[in-house]
Design a protein around this nucleic acid. Structure first.
Length: 485
DNA sequence: GTGTCTTTATG
DNA sequence: ATAAAGACA
Protein backbone atom coordinates (compact mmCIF):
# COMPACT_ATOMS: atom_id res chain seq x y z
CA UNK A 1 0.00 0.00 0.00
CA UNK A 2 1.16 3.44 -0.89
CA UNK A 3 2.22 5.70 1.92
CA UNK A 4 1.77 9.38 1.77
CA UNK A 5 3.75 11.59 4.13
CA UNK A 6 3.45 15.30 4.82
CA UNK A 7 6.32 17.52 5.86
CA UNK A 8 4.96 20.51 7.74
CA UNK A 9 7.37 23.38 7.17
CA UNK A 10 7.53 25.89 10.01
CA UNK A 11 10.68 27.78 11.02
CA UNK A 12 12.80 25.35 8.99
CA UNK A 13 12.46 26.72 5.47
CA UNK A 14 15.35 24.79 3.96
CA UNK A 15 16.06 21.50 2.24
CA UNK A 16 19.54 20.87 3.61
CA UNK A 17 20.25 19.68 7.14
CA UNK A 18 16.57 19.56 8.07
CA UNK A 19 16.05 16.92 10.76
CA UNK A 20 12.37 16.13 10.21
CA UNK A 21 12.65 16.29 6.44
CA UNK A 22 15.55 13.87 6.41
CA UNK A 23 13.74 11.50 8.75
CA UNK A 24 10.85 11.55 6.30
CA UNK A 25 13.16 10.87 3.40
CA UNK A 26 14.62 7.91 5.22
CA UNK A 27 11.18 6.49 5.96
CA UNK A 28 9.91 6.76 2.42
CA UNK A 29 9.75 3.68 0.27
CA UNK A 30 10.26 3.95 -3.41
CA UNK A 31 6.56 3.89 -4.06
CA UNK A 32 5.72 6.39 -1.36
CA UNK A 33 4.92 10.02 -1.83
CA UNK A 34 5.63 13.17 0.04
CA UNK A 35 3.92 16.50 0.13
CA UNK A 36 5.14 19.68 1.77
CA UNK A 37 2.87 22.14 3.48
CA UNK A 38 3.19 25.52 5.16
CA UNK A 39 0.48 26.90 7.42
CA UNK A 40 0.18 30.62 7.88
CA UNK A 41 -1.22 30.30 11.38
CA UNK A 42 -1.82 33.82 12.64
CA UNK A 43 -4.76 32.72 14.84
CA UNK A 44 -2.49 30.29 16.72
CA UNK A 45 0.25 32.87 17.11
CA UNK A 46 -2.12 35.51 18.47
CA UNK A 47 -0.32 38.64 19.62
CA UNK A 48 2.95 37.23 18.31
CA UNK A 49 1.85 36.57 14.76
CA UNK A 50 4.54 37.80 12.34
CA UNK A 51 4.79 41.55 11.97
CA UNK A 52 4.78 43.40 8.68
CA UNK A 53 8.50 43.16 7.91
CA UNK A 54 8.61 39.46 8.85
CA UNK A 55 5.65 38.75 6.59
CA UNK A 56 7.46 40.38 3.70
CA UNK A 57 10.42 38.11 4.36
CA UNK A 58 8.25 35.04 4.80
CA UNK A 59 6.53 35.60 1.48
CA UNK A 60 9.85 35.63 -0.37
CA UNK A 61 11.29 32.78 1.63
CA UNK A 62 8.29 30.59 0.84
CA UNK A 63 8.49 31.54 -2.81
CA UNK A 64 12.13 30.49 -2.85
CA UNK A 65 11.34 27.23 -1.06
CA UNK A 66 8.51 26.52 -3.47
CA UNK A 67 10.92 26.83 -6.38
CA UNK A 68 13.52 24.60 -4.74
CA UNK A 69 10.89 21.95 -4.06
CA UNK A 70 9.56 22.18 -7.60
CA UNK A 71 12.85 20.86 -8.88
CA UNK A 72 12.24 17.75 -6.80
CA UNK A 73 8.65 17.46 -7.97
CA UNK A 74 7.45 18.11 -4.46
CA UNK A 75 4.54 20.56 -4.21
CA UNK A 76 4.51 23.10 -1.41
CA UNK A 77 0.91 23.62 -0.44
CA UNK A 78 0.09 26.84 1.40
CA UNK A 79 -2.66 26.73 4.00
CA UNK A 80 -3.96 29.41 6.28
CA UNK A 81 -5.81 29.25 9.60
CA UNK A 82 -5.74 27.28 12.85
CA UNK A 83 -3.07 24.67 12.21
CA UNK A 84 -4.84 21.73 13.88
CA UNK A 85 -7.97 22.35 11.79
CA UNK A 86 -6.44 23.00 8.40
CA UNK A 87 -3.79 20.29 8.72
CA UNK A 88 -6.41 17.77 9.75
CA UNK A 89 -8.63 18.64 6.77
CA UNK A 90 -5.66 18.62 4.44
CA UNK A 91 -4.32 15.29 5.66
CA UNK A 92 -7.74 13.73 5.29
CA UNK A 93 -8.36 15.05 1.81
CA UNK A 94 -5.09 13.73 0.43
CA UNK A 95 -5.28 10.54 2.50
CA UNK A 96 -1.94 11.08 4.22
CA UNK A 97 -0.71 8.58 6.81
CA UNK A 98 1.95 10.64 8.51
CA UNK A 99 3.03 14.16 9.37
CA UNK A 100 6.64 15.16 10.04
CA UNK A 101 7.67 18.45 11.60
CA UNK A 102 10.37 20.21 13.60
CA UNK A 103 9.52 21.69 17.01
CA UNK A 104 9.38 25.38 17.74
CA UNK A 105 9.99 26.86 21.17
CA UNK A 106 7.53 29.73 21.43
CA UNK A 107 4.79 29.30 24.06
CA UNK A 108 2.06 29.40 21.40
CA UNK A 109 3.92 26.81 19.37
CA UNK A 110 3.85 24.11 22.06
CA UNK A 111 0.09 24.54 22.32
CA UNK A 112 -0.21 24.43 18.56
CA UNK A 113 1.80 21.20 18.41
CA UNK A 114 -0.36 19.56 21.06
CA UNK A 115 -3.54 20.54 19.23
CA UNK A 116 -2.22 19.28 15.89
CA UNK A 117 -1.16 15.93 17.35
CA UNK A 118 -4.53 15.52 19.03
CA UNK A 119 -6.54 16.23 15.88
CA UNK A 120 -4.38 14.09 13.64
CA UNK A 121 -4.50 11.18 16.02
CA UNK A 122 -8.29 11.25 15.70
CA UNK A 123 -8.04 10.60 11.96
CA UNK A 124 -5.25 8.07 12.24
CA UNK A 125 -2.40 10.20 10.96
CA UNK A 126 0.87 9.48 12.69
CA UNK A 127 2.89 12.50 13.83
CA UNK A 128 6.65 12.57 14.13
CA UNK A 129 8.29 15.62 15.73
CA UNK A 130 11.98 16.47 15.92
CA UNK A 131 14.34 18.88 17.60
CA UNK A 132 16.15 20.77 14.91
CA UNK A 133 16.43 24.51 15.35
CA UNK A 134 18.79 24.81 18.34
CA UNK A 135 22.24 23.55 19.16
CA UNK A 136 20.92 22.20 22.42
CA UNK A 137 17.48 21.03 23.45
CA UNK A 138 16.44 23.16 26.44
CA UNK A 139 15.15 20.27 28.57
CA UNK A 140 18.57 18.58 28.28
CA UNK A 141 20.47 21.23 30.21
CA UNK A 142 20.04 22.13 33.86
CA UNK A 143 22.38 23.51 36.49
CA UNK A 144 23.68 21.54 39.48
CA UNK A 145 20.63 22.41 41.56
CA UNK A 146 18.34 21.03 38.88
CA UNK A 147 17.03 24.41 37.73
CA UNK A 148 17.42 26.33 34.49
CA UNK A 149 20.44 28.60 34.01
CA UNK A 150 19.77 32.32 34.25
CA UNK A 151 23.28 33.56 33.53
CA UNK A 152 24.74 33.19 30.06
CA UNK A 153 28.35 32.23 30.81
CA UNK A 154 27.61 29.21 33.02
CA UNK A 155 24.95 28.22 30.49
CA UNK A 156 27.37 28.44 27.60
CA UNK A 157 30.15 26.62 29.48
CA UNK A 158 27.71 23.80 30.19
CA UNK A 159 26.74 23.77 26.50
CA UNK A 160 30.35 23.56 25.40
CA UNK A 161 30.95 20.67 27.80
CA UNK A 162 27.87 18.98 26.38
CA UNK A 163 29.09 19.50 22.82
CA UNK A 164 32.48 18.07 23.78
CA UNK A 165 30.82 14.92 25.04
CA UNK A 166 28.13 14.48 22.41
CA UNK A 167 29.34 16.57 19.51
CA UNK A 168 27.16 18.58 17.16
CA UNK A 169 25.71 16.57 14.29
CA UNK A 170 27.35 17.19 10.95
CA UNK A 171 25.04 18.94 8.51
CA UNK A 172 23.11 16.60 6.26
CA UNK A 173 23.07 16.97 2.50
CA UNK A 174 20.19 18.39 0.56
CA UNK A 175 16.87 16.62 0.84
CA UNK A 176 15.69 14.57 -2.12
CA UNK A 177 19.01 13.30 -3.46
CA UNK A 178 18.26 9.70 -2.62
CA UNK A 179 14.63 9.51 -3.67
CA UNK A 180 13.96 8.07 -7.07
CA UNK A 181 10.82 8.16 -9.11
CA UNK A 182 8.69 10.36 -6.93
CA UNK A 183 5.49 11.20 -8.73
CA UNK A 184 2.82 13.51 -7.48
CA UNK A 185 0.38 13.37 -10.32
CA UNK A 186 -2.17 11.41 -8.32
CA UNK A 187 -3.38 14.51 -6.53
CA UNK A 188 -4.87 17.37 -8.43
CA UNK A 189 -4.27 20.41 -6.27
CA UNK A 190 -5.75 22.90 -8.66
CA UNK A 191 -9.33 22.44 -7.55
CA UNK A 192 -8.80 21.91 -3.85
CA UNK A 193 -10.76 24.47 -1.92
CA UNK A 194 -8.36 24.57 1.04
CA UNK A 195 -5.39 25.50 -1.07
CA UNK A 196 -4.27 29.11 -0.82
CA UNK A 197 -2.25 31.04 -3.27
CA UNK A 198 0.70 32.76 -1.64
CA UNK A 199 -0.32 35.98 -3.35
CA UNK A 200 -3.76 35.96 -1.76
CA UNK A 201 -2.50 36.11 1.82
CA UNK A 202 -1.75 39.84 1.92
CA UNK A 203 1.86 39.35 2.99
CA UNK A 204 3.19 42.12 0.77
CA UNK A 205 2.00 45.59 1.79
CA UNK A 206 0.33 47.90 -0.67
CA UNK A 207 2.60 50.81 0.19
CA UNK A 208 6.09 49.97 -0.97
CA UNK A 209 8.10 50.66 2.16
CA UNK A 210 10.07 47.48 1.57
CA UNK A 211 12.19 48.65 -1.35
CA UNK A 212 15.26 49.16 0.82
CA UNK A 213 14.83 45.68 2.20
CA UNK A 214 14.39 44.19 -1.23
CA UNK A 215 17.67 45.63 -2.36
CA UNK A 216 19.64 44.40 0.61
CA UNK A 217 18.30 40.93 1.34
CA UNK A 218 17.85 37.68 -0.48
CA UNK A 219 15.39 35.61 1.54
CA UNK A 220 15.62 31.86 1.09
CA UNK A 221 18.12 29.07 1.45
CA UNK A 222 20.44 30.22 -1.33
CA UNK A 223 20.58 33.75 0.09
CA UNK A 224 21.37 32.33 3.52
CA UNK A 225 24.20 30.20 2.19
CA UNK A 226 25.68 33.15 0.29
CA UNK A 227 25.53 35.40 3.35
CA UNK A 228 27.28 32.91 5.55
CA UNK A 229 29.99 32.17 3.00
CA UNK A 230 30.62 35.86 2.48
CA UNK A 231 30.91 36.42 6.22
CA UNK A 232 33.17 33.45 6.79
CA UNK A 233 35.43 34.41 3.88
CA UNK A 234 35.56 38.15 4.50
CA UNK A 235 34.84 39.02 8.09
CA UNK A 236 34.90 36.20 10.58
CA UNK A 237 38.56 36.67 11.52
CA UNK A 238 37.83 40.34 12.28
CA UNK A 239 34.63 39.61 14.18
CA UNK A 240 36.09 39.97 17.66
CA UNK A 241 36.35 43.75 17.39
CA UNK A 242 34.60 44.33 14.07
CA UNK A 243 31.24 43.21 15.40
CA UNK A 244 30.99 46.30 17.57
CA UNK A 245 31.43 48.78 14.74
CA UNK A 246 28.06 49.41 13.14
CA UNK A 247 29.63 51.55 10.42
CA UNK A 248 31.53 48.54 9.05
CA UNK A 249 29.99 45.33 7.76
CA UNK A 250 31.90 42.74 9.73
CA UNK A 251 28.81 41.04 11.06
CA UNK A 252 27.12 38.03 9.50
CA UNK A 253 23.65 39.44 8.73
CA UNK A 254 22.45 35.89 9.27
CA UNK A 255 19.71 36.60 11.84
CA UNK A 256 16.67 36.64 9.52
CA UNK A 257 17.90 33.55 7.67
CA UNK A 258 18.43 31.80 10.97
CA UNK A 259 15.05 32.85 12.32
CA UNK A 260 13.21 31.37 9.37
CA UNK A 261 15.42 28.30 9.38
CA UNK A 262 16.85 28.93 5.92
CA UNK A 263 20.12 27.83 7.47
CA UNK A 264 20.67 25.72 10.57
CA UNK A 265 22.69 26.56 13.65
CA UNK A 266 24.61 23.33 13.02
CA UNK A 267 25.60 24.47 9.54
CA UNK A 268 26.82 27.76 10.99
CA UNK A 269 28.69 26.01 13.77
CA UNK A 270 30.67 23.74 11.45
CA UNK A 271 31.28 26.39 8.81
CA UNK A 272 32.58 28.88 11.39
CA UNK A 273 34.90 26.33 12.94
CA UNK A 274 36.69 25.90 9.64
CA UNK A 275 38.41 29.02 10.94
CA UNK A 276 39.51 27.88 14.36
CA UNK A 277 40.39 31.30 15.74
CA UNK A 278 39.34 33.43 18.68
CA UNK A 279 37.03 35.47 16.49
CA UNK A 280 35.18 32.40 15.26
CA UNK A 281 34.60 31.34 18.85
CA UNK A 282 33.31 34.79 19.70
CA UNK A 283 30.91 34.50 16.80
CA UNK A 284 29.69 31.09 17.92
CA UNK A 285 29.18 32.52 21.38
CA UNK A 286 26.68 34.90 19.79
CA UNK A 287 24.96 31.91 18.21
CA UNK A 288 24.99 30.58 21.77
CA UNK A 289 23.06 33.66 22.91
CA UNK A 290 20.37 32.65 20.47
CA UNK A 291 20.17 29.21 22.07
CA UNK A 292 20.12 30.85 25.51
CA UNK A 293 17.20 33.09 24.48
CA UNK A 294 15.17 30.09 23.35
CA UNK A 295 16.19 28.21 26.47
CA UNK A 296 14.91 31.01 28.69
CA UNK A 297 11.68 31.32 26.72
CA UNK A 298 11.14 27.59 27.15
CA UNK A 299 11.49 27.76 30.93
CA UNK A 300 9.94 31.21 31.39
CA UNK A 301 7.14 31.36 28.83
CA UNK A 302 5.55 34.48 30.33
CA UNK A 303 8.61 36.67 29.69
CA UNK A 304 7.49 38.17 26.36
CA UNK A 305 5.03 40.17 28.45
CA UNK A 306 6.34 40.12 32.01
CA UNK A 307 9.73 40.89 33.53
CA UNK A 308 11.87 37.91 34.50
CA UNK A 309 12.81 39.71 37.70
CA UNK A 310 9.66 40.16 39.73
CA UNK A 311 10.88 43.34 41.47
CA UNK A 312 10.37 45.12 38.15
CA UNK A 313 6.62 44.62 38.30
CA UNK A 314 6.44 47.83 40.35
CA UNK A 315 8.87 49.79 38.16
CA UNK A 316 7.35 53.24 37.42
CA UNK A 317 7.36 53.20 33.63
CA UNK A 318 5.88 56.29 32.00
CA UNK A 319 3.29 56.72 29.30
CA UNK A 320 4.39 59.22 26.67
CA UNK A 321 3.21 58.51 23.17
CA UNK A 322 4.85 61.63 21.78
CA UNK A 323 8.32 60.47 22.82
CA UNK A 324 7.59 56.93 21.68
CA UNK A 325 6.77 58.22 18.22
CA UNK A 326 9.90 60.35 18.05
CA UNK A 327 11.93 57.29 19.00
CA UNK A 328 10.21 55.19 16.34
CA UNK A 329 10.81 57.83 13.69
CA UNK A 330 14.47 58.33 14.56
CA UNK A 331 13.90 61.92 15.68
CA UNK A 332 15.24 61.90 19.25
CA UNK A 333 18.06 64.36 18.67
CA UNK A 334 20.68 61.73 19.60
CA UNK A 335 22.42 60.83 16.32
CA UNK A 336 23.40 57.23 17.09
CA UNK A 337 19.86 56.48 18.29
CA UNK A 338 18.25 58.11 15.27
CA UNK A 339 20.65 56.38 12.88
CA UNK A 340 19.70 53.01 14.35
CA UNK A 341 15.97 53.62 14.17
CA UNK A 342 16.24 54.77 10.56
CA UNK A 343 18.40 51.79 9.60
CA UNK A 344 15.70 49.60 11.12
CA UNK A 345 13.01 51.26 9.04
CA UNK A 346 15.05 51.05 5.87
CA UNK A 347 16.51 47.55 6.10
CA UNK A 348 14.20 45.80 8.56
CA UNK A 349 17.37 45.17 10.51
CA UNK A 350 19.62 47.00 12.98
CA UNK A 351 23.20 46.34 14.05
CA UNK A 352 23.20 44.63 17.45
CA UNK A 353 25.36 47.21 19.17
CA UNK A 354 22.88 49.86 18.11
CA UNK A 355 19.91 47.73 19.16
CA UNK A 356 21.29 47.92 22.68
CA UNK A 357 21.79 51.67 22.45
CA UNK A 358 18.29 52.46 21.16
CA UNK A 359 16.72 50.03 23.61
CA UNK A 360 18.59 51.59 26.53
CA UNK A 361 17.42 54.99 25.33
CA UNK A 362 13.78 53.92 25.27
CA UNK A 363 13.82 52.14 28.62
CA UNK A 364 16.25 54.27 30.62
CA UNK A 365 16.27 57.74 29.07
CA UNK A 366 12.60 57.87 28.09
CA UNK A 367 11.50 55.54 30.89
CA UNK A 368 9.02 53.90 28.55
CA UNK A 369 8.03 50.25 29.04
CA UNK A 370 10.43 47.88 27.25
CA UNK A 371 7.36 46.09 25.89
CA UNK A 372 6.59 49.14 23.69
CA UNK A 373 10.03 48.86 22.18
CA UNK A 374 9.73 45.11 21.76
CA UNK A 375 6.44 45.60 19.91
CA UNK A 376 7.97 48.11 17.51
CA UNK A 377 10.89 45.79 16.82
CA UNK A 378 8.43 42.95 16.33
CA UNK A 379 6.68 44.82 13.55
CA UNK A 380 9.72 46.29 11.82
CA UNK A 381 12.46 43.65 12.04
CA UNK A 382 12.81 41.03 9.34
CA UNK A 383 14.55 38.86 11.94
CA UNK A 384 11.87 39.37 14.62
CA UNK A 385 12.17 36.36 16.88
CA UNK A 386 10.17 36.07 20.07
CA UNK A 387 12.98 34.51 22.07
CA UNK A 388 15.74 36.85 20.91
CA UNK A 389 13.57 39.94 21.06
CA UNK A 390 12.40 39.14 24.58
CA UNK A 391 15.87 38.44 25.90
CA UNK A 392 17.32 41.52 24.25
CA UNK A 393 14.71 43.91 25.56
CA UNK A 394 14.65 42.49 29.07
CA UNK A 395 18.43 42.54 29.19
CA UNK A 396 18.59 46.22 28.31
CA UNK A 397 15.65 47.20 30.49
CA UNK A 398 17.52 45.60 33.38
CA UNK A 399 14.74 43.18 34.32
CA UNK A 400 16.06 40.13 32.49
CA UNK A 401 19.03 37.75 32.53
CA UNK A 402 22.01 40.05 33.05
CA UNK A 403 24.78 39.30 35.52
CA UNK A 404 26.03 42.90 35.70
CA UNK A 405 26.08 44.36 39.21
CA UNK A 406 25.06 47.83 38.07
CA UNK A 407 21.97 49.29 36.44
CA UNK A 408 23.13 49.50 32.86
CA UNK A 409 22.46 52.92 31.37
CA UNK A 410 24.11 53.49 28.03
CA UNK A 411 25.34 56.99 27.30
CA UNK A 412 24.36 57.52 23.65
CA UNK A 413 27.15 60.03 23.05
CA UNK A 414 29.90 57.85 24.51
CA UNK A 415 28.58 54.77 22.74
CA UNK A 416 28.58 56.67 19.46
CA UNK A 417 32.10 57.99 19.93
CA UNK A 418 33.41 54.61 21.00
CA UNK A 419 31.83 52.40 18.35
CA UNK A 420 31.30 54.83 15.48
CA UNK A 421 34.42 56.98 15.94
CA UNK A 422 34.43 58.40 12.43
CA UNK A 423 30.68 58.88 12.39
CA UNK A 424 30.32 56.71 9.29
CA UNK A 425 27.21 54.99 10.59
CA UNK A 426 25.53 58.25 11.53
CA UNK A 427 26.45 59.83 8.20
CA UNK A 428 24.87 56.94 6.34
CA UNK A 429 21.55 56.98 8.15
CA UNK A 430 21.24 60.61 9.28
CA UNK A 431 22.43 62.42 6.15
CA UNK A 432 21.46 65.85 7.48
CA UNK A 433 24.46 65.55 9.83
CA UNK A 434 26.86 64.27 7.19
CA UNK A 435 28.92 67.45 7.02
CA UNK A 436 29.54 67.65 10.76
CA UNK A 437 33.08 66.93 11.88
CA UNK A 438 33.50 63.56 13.59
CA UNK A 439 34.40 65.47 16.73
CA UNK A 440 30.80 66.73 16.94
CA UNK A 441 28.74 64.26 15.02
CA UNK A 442 27.51 62.39 18.08
CA UNK A 443 26.56 65.53 19.99
CA UNK A 444 25.15 68.25 17.74
CA UNK A 445 23.52 69.81 20.82
CA UNK A 446 26.99 70.59 22.24
CA UNK A 447 28.45 71.74 18.96
CA UNK A 448 29.60 75.38 18.65
CA UNK A 449 27.19 77.45 16.53
CA UNK A 450 29.79 78.19 13.89
CA UNK A 451 30.49 74.48 13.37
CA UNK A 452 26.78 73.78 13.04
CA UNK A 453 26.38 76.60 10.57
CA UNK A 454 29.26 75.35 8.44
CA UNK A 455 27.70 71.91 8.35
CA UNK A 456 24.32 73.33 7.44
CA UNK A 457 22.68 72.03 10.60
CA UNK A 458 19.95 74.09 12.26
CA UNK A 459 18.83 72.37 15.43
CA UNK A 460 15.07 72.26 15.76
CA UNK A 461 14.72 72.78 12.02
CA UNK A 462 16.56 70.22 9.95
CA UNK A 463 17.64 68.05 12.86
CA UNK A 464 15.78 67.81 16.19
CA UNK A 465 16.96 69.13 19.51
CA UNK A 466 17.36 66.29 22.05
CA UNK A 467 13.97 65.18 23.42
CA UNK A 468 15.56 64.52 26.83
CA UNK A 469 18.74 65.57 28.58
CA UNK A 470 20.69 62.35 29.04
CA UNK A 471 22.29 63.31 32.32
CA UNK A 472 18.96 64.26 33.91
CA UNK A 473 17.25 61.24 32.38
CA UNK A 474 19.92 59.02 33.86
CA UNK A 475 19.25 60.39 37.35
CA UNK A 476 15.53 59.90 36.82
CA UNK A 477 16.05 56.27 35.81
CA UNK A 478 18.24 55.60 38.86
CA UNK A 479 15.54 57.12 41.09
CA UNK A 480 12.91 54.96 39.41
CA UNK A 481 15.00 51.88 40.14
CA UNK A 482 15.43 52.92 43.76
CA UNK A 483 11.67 53.17 44.16
CA UNK A 484 11.31 49.44 43.44
CA UNK A 485 13.71 48.39 46.23
C1' DG B 1 33.21 29.78 51.63
C1' DT B 2 35.77 31.62 47.40
C1' DG B 3 36.59 32.96 42.86
C1' DT B 4 34.76 34.27 38.53
C1' DC B 5 31.80 36.64 35.61
C1' DT B 6 29.08 40.70 33.65
C1' DT B 7 28.15 43.95 25.62
C1' DT B 8 28.85 50.30 31.63
C1' DA B 9 29.33 54.72 33.50
C1' DT B 10 31.04 58.79 36.17
C1' DG B 11 34.45 61.53 38.79
C1' DA C 1 39.54 54.36 40.97
C1' DT C 2 34.93 53.22 42.07
C1' DA C 3 29.88 52.45 41.80
C1' DA C 4 26.78 48.10 42.81
C1' DA C 5 24.68 41.92 43.09
C1' DG C 6 23.75 37.55 42.39
C1' DA C 7 24.33 33.15 39.86
C1' DC C 8 27.17 29.42 39.51
C1' DA C 9 30.94 25.65 40.02
Amino acid sequence: MKKRAIHWFRSDLRLSDNTALHALEKDLHETAECVAVYVLSDPDEGKWASGAASKWWLYHSLTSLQEDLKELNVPLVILSGVASEVLSRFAQSIKADSLYYNCRYEPWASKQEQAVEKELEKIGVECASFHDGLLIEPANLLNKTGGPYKVFTPFWNACLAHFDRHGIALPKRKFGKSIKGIKFDTIDYSNKSFKQDLDDLHMIPRIKWYEGMQEFWQPGEEGARKRLLHFVNKSITKYDTGRDRPGDSDVSYISPHLHFGEISARQIWHRALEHDCKSARTYLREIGWRDFAHYLLHFFPETPDEPLQKTFESFPWRTDNGSLEKWQQGMTGYPIVDAGMRQLWHLGWMHNRVRMIVASFLAKDLLLPWQRGAEWFWDTLVDADLANNTLGWQWTAGCGADAAPFFRIFNPVLQGEKFDPDGEYVKTWVPELAKLDKKWIHKPFDTPPLELQMAGVVLGENYPKPIVDHSAARQRALQALKSTK
